[in-house]
Write a protein that binds this DNA or RNA. Sequence first.
DNA 1: ACCGATCATCGAAGCGCTTCGACAGAGACG
DNA 2: CGTCTCTGTCGAAGCGCTTCGATGATCGGT
Lengths: 334, 334
Amino acid sequence: MSERAVTISEVARHAGVAVSTVSYVLSGKRAISADTRRRVLDSVRTLGYHPNAGARALASRRSNVIALVLPLRVGMHVPVLMQFATSVVTEARRYDHDVLLLTADEGSDGLRRAAASALVDGLVLMDVELHDSRVPLLKDLAEPSVLIGFPADSAGLTCVDLDFARAGTLCVEHLAERGHREIALLGAPSVVYERGTGFARRTREGFAVAVAETGLTGVALPCEEDFDRVCAAIGDLLDARPGLSGLVVHNEAAVNHVLGALRQSGRRVPDDIAVVAICPDDIAERSSPPLTSVLIPAEEVGHQAVRLLMEKLEGRAVPDGTLLQPRLTVRAST
Amino acid sequence: MSERAVTISEVARHAGVAVSTVSYVLSGKRAISADTRRRVLDSVRTLGYHPNAGARALASRRSNVIALVLPLRVGMHVPVLMQFATSVVTEARRYDHDVLLLTADEGSDGLRRAAASALVDGLVLMDVELHDSRVPLLKDLAEPSVLIGFPADSAGLTCVDLDFARAGTLCVEHLAERGHREIALLGAPSVVYERGTGFARRTREGFAVAVAETGLTGVALPCEEDFDRVCAAIGDLLDARPGLSGLVVHNEAAVNHVLGALRQSGRRVPDDIAVVAICPDDIAERSSPPLTSVLIPAEEVGHQAVRLLMEKLEGRAVPDGTLLQPRLTVRAST
DNA sequence: ACCGATCATCGAAGCGCTTCGACAGAGACG
DNA sequence: CGTCTCTGTCGAAGCGCTTCGATGATCGGT
């Protein structure tokens, strides 16, 4: 156990300057002579000084902490969430900020508490639904926020997301180029659509539009995540549409079950049926065969969200909506 | 955007009492008459007062924030991590604390920074390795900490974990009871063993001890997480040990691939080969067939970790090591 | 040699809260 | 009726930092 923490006034005494001078050296907000700066920084290092976060927050009205609000419900694919979370933390550290973890089950109260107590300077919300109860609160809060995902009424909000509609379109176009005429989309579990989660619907819409434009035939179905129901769904689908030769899977948890079901039904991938997934690269690479996939750029989304939030914290204007372009990687499954 | 935040002195004025009285009402640290308390609480509600976190931390030397240090490396099964994380957040909120998210890739510096700046009152570290570089620092820090997992030298530290050795033993005993004589353990990817991660090794040891004690024959193998290598490993294993009839799988990411590989090789579960998994219930339930499994009680581990940390924050003594007992649920796979 | 800029530094006033010691008023007790 | 002990409340002193305005010192321009 170590003793009481070093304070700025001890640093000042040690360096033979005023407290305010130390502060200005550390913040860079006023010009300081090279000589003084060096002396102060030496003292900081010698004494092992770390500014007290509470005092800093109180005096500067900035906590240098942002809130990350994670959804923790069923039907979310957790590894992707985690990628978002880590990229948010990493990027926040680059801006000298820390991340406070809030879970969505505290609801709006949690957000209000964190914001009103000046615990955080800003908020990043993940997995925003089309009709999200937290959205009105957000508009009301003094603290800036960035949403990952788009609510129905995004006016006045800053939102970032992968362009899922485009992702759906890309998959269809890729299958069309490969000569497939009859295709299907296996999406999220139906509860996710019912909840009105934006990304699931937008993919489906992109799929539908592209199917129409390319003149293919295609159906979009929800997809549960246990092996037996995936098997059943695939069985029904293949029975109902014997001409089906292409599959788009937008469900990280189910994608391996889909491959298992196809194997079991004797269909070879890609010879009998081609599969494109919308999922992280590591899942696509670990499957057998490795899947042609559209990557969800979790890292970039997180980075962008933090970058936008920092801009807003500096008082700069930022675009309302940022859509990140998906990229399709061809692997062995198409 | 709302206006400046309400302060305690505005509440005091509104209620017609001194600032300190408001503080005592809110903290309960001194007796306050029922009448005064009511008036103050009314004012708090009317004005929408939220104490400023920075000011509170500065004056009380307590931030009411704990750090959660998450590993974010390969080979960790992320959904389990996430369960830990949410249970930590949930439980911390019960004690009126918030959670600051730190990633292990900032290393010891991150811990030191958060602790030295009084950003956090205490730390919860996840996925501690046998020889973890952060352990010495932790012993040196004034802030109390709790580890999830056991390092080699846990003297003076507070550690919580599932009793993985017992989990390994349970699986073996279950298979022995079912009459299996020749079994195998498929564990984590080999890189995890090389890193010296405790839980993987402890399971293997529990497995080995139980195999010896029950007089079975058994091998323990690492297990990679892509389908093709799982298939190959299973193929080799079945060739090498034709009498093998029981499998313990301690690898959440690979367990479905294992089932796929068995299906593909024509083995039926449980008729030809029985499978016990050490994994969360939801994975076990979604597999086909649903797996007999030993549950990792992520929620309880997180709760315990926070509870222990809170005890330490109050200055109370706590046990050095807490092992949570695993529970085996029988399903269709054995 | 003088004036106004410019630069580097200082001192002091808070930021909003907790907590300590002080102190009236009310009972209890002899 | 004086003294002692509680109770409930208050005022003020910080907690460690940022930031504003002030103050010398330095310097180029005239």
